[in-house]
Amino acid sequence: MAELLEIRWHGRGGQGAKTAAILLGEAVSASGKYIQAFPEYGPERMGAPVLAFNRISDEPIRLHCQVANPAIVVVLDSTLIGKADVTAGVPEDGLYIINTNLSPGEMRKQLGLTGGKVYTLDATEISMETIGRPIPNTPMMGALIRTSGLLTIDEFVANTRDRLEAKFRPDIVEKNIQAIERAYQEVQGEE
């Protein structure tokens, strides 16, 4: 099987984990790669822990099972740490991107990680300051683009702008783009 990248999104119902997976999938698909984007199909309740997934490959993807060993984990809500098993199945060199006001080093300690890479971003603050509502999924996509190198920020913003314009007013679209671009700049890695 060709190189397959798997991503797991952790969030709470209403934070947009599924939307983030779909927007990422659409943008990566537009760049010519093959993708899958799907949520964990469970009860959908506001505030309940939810999962969403992406698969990305240069070859057609035929797998239709759940993602068990994601190389990248994105956590939209830091209150899930210690409650949802965000490290489950992640390989030793896995990459974590977490919405928190803690530093990557502090988050690494909380997660009990020895390997891999940890990035943090206060996506809730960014979304409050740009969009005016606590919707962390948009900024977290900016952080993912920066840390994963899947697409250039310009490619991602151009595609996501098209998708958002189909659904939202121009000022809302601009605020979301601002959130993505700020997150791209502000995401923190370890020293």
Partner: peptide, 12 residues
Amino acid sequence: MDGFIVSHGMGN
């Protein structure tokens, strides 16, 4: 087609 896995899952 399979419910959710194909009906709601995004692919190419």
